[in-house]
Structure formats: structure tokens, C-alpha cells
Design a protein around this nucleic acid. Structure first.
Lengths: 283, 283
DNA sequence: CCCCTGTTTTGATCTAAGTCAACGTTGGGC
DNA sequence: GCCCAACGTTGACTTAGATCAAAACAGGGG
């Protein structure tokens, strides 16, 4: 704890940086590297939804426009009216909420193939803000068309609910981390969750690149930037992981998982146990 | 921070209490005080969904069974297969997740009229646990029937998305609180959020009853039980609020809102501002 | 290739809130 | 109406991690 003087975080610095940069180079913004739908991350989400016909045609009908953002640019702001979700085609994005006095809490990092903005479904107003961490390409999908289509395609409807459920689960895990874990456990949990995410996309589970700064990691995990550094050095000394600048190498996933006191690991063990016993219900 | 020795929390104590109690009195469990659908909280959610015909008939068709729980009883456990959601008819429920070494984080308190369990939509396994805070009556609704019905009733489909979006928003606010707020701000935010919730249901915004213990409040807010007490006494001395046992009286909502550094208040001000300016987009 | 700005690292010091301990309060069960 | 386990409160002491400060490092634009 101990952060009373509201030292206006990341945001302001980035805002300033952006203002400076925006004066120059407003080069090839739109449609400079338009990838075909079948190369896009969301294709993976759409494909299994039973769209047997011309996939490209269906997708084209719901995609309003393609946009690209440079590092630091804003996808949507808090308080803006909501009428579209964003499918990330490439790059990565952070989302965050903030207090009235400028403190910021990052609520998630999002990568290619993920859907952004569904949470504004409730009020019709964005309650969070999204900012590109690097050069990022997205497809804008109008919600009303998405709803219309999901009525005709039950698999799409189910999938939207599934995606939101996944986000809720992820938030629950993060709340456990923010409320009950030590700084060391937080970092271990974080590295492990990144590793799993990459593995799921068939990248290396033990070597990857961070698209976010130490400051962003600390903010997300509810600890100071300096603490992030200190603990990463400790991991290095313990032979657990090497994090040189933004390049990560994990040496011992098992030990990391033990350190993390993982919710997900616990769940997996629970399910296994449940299967093993086979006979519930006593008189 | 500073909670390394995993002092097994609430859970274990409650479990023990339940075991003791369960030996005796397994009295009128089911259907002892079955309220008609039109008295039920979820009716309010269902009514505006365009079910113009016989509402009761439609509802009866999706409600699998009615259950009632006593204080401390579990609605569902982590790791259990998911096939139904619960609509709370009366009473209140806490949901929580936990680490493998027994630390618990409460993720929400839920009251009559709210829907529980939609978050398991993703994996088909409950990743959290729900426990009644007091005598509580619920309706169990099978998910497949809910999905089936929501295909025919677009308003229901929209409403499910809206409910999940609301939960996500609520989690974002809680993450901001857990990651960035002081203990005092947390309590102020909490009291204010309860106040708003009661006001929305047309109860008093300044006087209400807490169904959860100090321990539960502290756990939910990521602070120690003792800190909750200390700060409540401070609020009392400052003439801000009187919290005697479980009876709350709020004396100065404005000052409380200032203390809370509210995300929601900030949002409201933002929207107002946006309306006032009327002219966006500069060259 | 060098500068400049933002990022990362390390050390010294401080503090909000956690933990421990002990005591007051209460309401549900018999 | 009495008892006791759970709940709530208050004080004394400890500590994980925040803040401050300052140096080392990178990498993109000119």
C-alpha cells in the first residue's frame, strides 16, 4: 500500500508523448497492411462456429472497418458511447480503469485473436479505456450486427457468452492475486499465465517477448515498478527465470507454479480428485 | 500486504460450524416458503423481456426446481460441473475463489433479483464457490433451456449479455479498489456501493442492514478485519457514518463519495462534460 | 553515430496496514 | 433465561513493500 499522493501515472506521460508524436508523421494509417480474414486472429474464433458457407462473405458483412494503431494510441476512451467491439488481428492492447484523481489500474493485456469491448454491453458506454502497446491492427465489428448474426447462428451466441465468461474467470483470478497474494506470488503467477497463453497459441511456453513495460506489469499486479525489478532479479539469482529487458526465458515451470500458488492449478487438481473418487452422495 | 503464513480463513471455520449443525435439524428444506413467480426477484429481470404471453407459464418451463439454503450452506462448489444458473429470490450469497493453500478472496455479494453462475459459461466447470450469508431462496434454471429460450426471445439474449457485462464492470471497479485504493477509500467505496444498490431497489440509501460479517467485508476489500473496525470507528468519530454491529446509518453521502474517489462518479462527470462540450474533433 | 528521452535497476529510508493478543458483546440453542 | 461460540473492538508491535533518489542502459530520430 502506501500510495496516498496521487502520483499521476503512466497515462499522463504517455499522453504527452503521443501529443508530441502526433504533430509529425501521420503517414499510412488506414489499410496499409490489410491482412485477409483467413490470416486474422478472429478467424480462429469464427471458423468453428458452423459458418459452413463462404466464411469471408459472412465476416465481411459484419466487419465495419479495419483500423491500425501505433504504440500508445487509444482504441476507445472511458465515457464514449459504445456501438462496436474490436477483434485484435495483430499486436497487443492494454485496458484500464481510473479514479477521479488520476490513479490507473490496468485490467488486462490483450493479444491477437481476442475480442475487446464486450464489457460495455451493459451500459452502452465504455467504462474502461484501451491503448495499443505496440503497432496493432483491429477489425471493428458493429454490435447490432453481431447480435443479429448470433441470433441466426446459435454457435456464435454461445461463443459470445463463453468469451465473456472467460473474461469474468480471468478477473476472478486477478482479484485473488490483488487481494491475497504476495509480490513474489504475483510475479510468478503473471509469468506462468503468460507462458500458458503463448503455449495455447502454439508458441514457446518458456521463451517469449514482453510487449509491456515494467511499469505496466507492476500496475497490473498492484505492486511498484521497483518491486517488479527486484523480484525479477531474485528469480534470476534463484535460477528460476531470466528476464533481460523484454526477453523472457523460464527455466523451471514447476517451481514457478509452486511459487504462484495458482488458482488454476488447484482447480485442475480438484477436478482430477473428483474423477478419482467416483462415488459422491452419502445418506 | 504481509500475510505469508496462510492462516486458513473463514471457510474452514464455517465448514466446521456447518458440520456441527448439519447433524441435527434437517427440517423443512425444500418448498417450505415457495413464493409465486411474480413475487420473485428474477421476475423483474424477466418481465421487460417482451414475454407478452403467460409469464408464469414461460418461467415455469425454464425453472428446474426451487431450493432454499440456510446461513453457511453451499450453493455450488469449485470444480463442480456446471449446468444451471441460480436466480436469487430472497436472502444473500457470497461468491469466492481460493488458492491451493487455503487463502480465500470473496469476489462478490449477491442479493435478491440477481443471477448467479453465468461465469461458469466458459469451461462448464464452476471456478468459484457460492455460500448463503443468511436464509436464502433460489430458482435453479437449466442453462440449455435458457439458451434455447434466449434464441427465441432476442430481449432475453441481450439481457444475458447485459448481465455479464455488468458483472465485468463491477469486477473492474473492484480491481481498481484492490490495486490502487487506501483502506479508507475502500471502506468508503464499499458503503457507497451498498447505498446505491439499495437505492436502486427503492430501499433507503442511508439506512440499511449488513448481511455479512466484518471478516467478510475485510476479505472482500483486501484488508484485515481489524482495519475494517478501526476505520469504521474513525468514520463514526468524523460524523460520517454510524455502523453499530450490522446496522448502518450514513450521515453524509457527498463527503463519503469524495473520500471514495469513485470510478463511477468520475464516469458520470465525464459523460456530463462530454454532453456539455457538444463539439469534438479538431483538425 | 550520437543525443536525448524513456526505461530499468539498485540502494536507503519510511509507513500503511498487517499480525498478535486480549477483552467486550451478542444472539441462537437448549 | 443462561451459556458459549462466533463476532466485534482496541492497543502494541512488526513488516512487506512503497517512495525517494540516482545511476546505468537502451533505442529510435535526426
Amino acid at each position: 500500500m502506501l500510495r496516498v499522493p496521487p502520483r499521476r501515472e503512466a497515462d499522463t506521460a504517455e499522453e504527452k508523448m503521443m501529443r508530441r508524436k502526433t504533430l509529425k508523421s501521420r503517414a499510412g494509417d488506414e489499410a496499409c497492411d490489410s491482412i485477409s480474414c483467413s490470416d486474422c486472429g478472429i478467424y480462429l474464433l469464427c471458423a468453428p462456429f458452423g459458418v459452413d458457407e463462404d466464411v469471408d462473405a459472412v465476416l465481411d458483412s459484419i466487419i465495419r472497418r479495419r483500423l491500425s494503431f501505433r504504440r500508445g494510441e487509444v482504441l476507445y476512451r472511458m465515457g464514449q458511447p459504445f456501438d462496436a467491439v474490436f477483434a485484435i488481428r495483430s499486436g497487443s492492447v492494454k485496458t484500464y480503469v481510473s479514479t477521479d484523481d488520476g490513479r490507473v489500474q490496468i485490467t488486462g493485456f490483450h493479444v491477437a485473436g481476442e475480442l475487446l469491448g464486450l464489457n460495455a454491453m451493459n451500459t452502452g458506454i465504455y467504462t474502461s479505456e484501451a491503448r495499443a502497446l505496440e503497432a496493432t491492427a483491429v477489425c471493428e465489428v458493429a454490435v447490432d450486427q453481431l447480435e443479429e448474426l448470433s441470433r441466426r447462428e446459435p454457435v456464435l451466441q454461445r461463443s459470445m457468452l463463453r468469451i465473456m465468461g472467460e473474461e469474468i474467470e480471468h478477473h476472478e483470478e486477478l482479484m485473488l492475486l490483488l487481494g491475497k497474494k504476495t509480490a513474489e506470488e504475483r510475479l510468478a503467477t503473471y509469468l506462468l499465465s503468460l507462458s500458458r497463453r503463448f503455449a495455447k497459441r502454439h508458441f514457446s511456453a518458456t521463451q517469449f517477448h514482453l510487449s509491456m513495460s515494467r511499469g505496466d506489469i507492476g500496475n497490473y499486479l498492484g505492486i511498484a515498478e521497483e518491486t517488479v525489478c527486484r523480484i525479477l532479479t531474485r528469480f534470476e539469482n534463484d535460477g528460476l527465470a531470466n528476464v533481460r529487458h523484454r526477453q523472457v526465458v523460464l527455466n523451471d515451470l514447476d517451481r514457478l507454479a509452486k511459487l504462484a500458488h495458482d488458482h488454476r492449478g488447484y482447480l485442475a487438481r480438484l477436478s482430477a480428485h473428483r474423477c478419482a473418487e467416483a462415488s459422491p452422495v452419502s445418506p
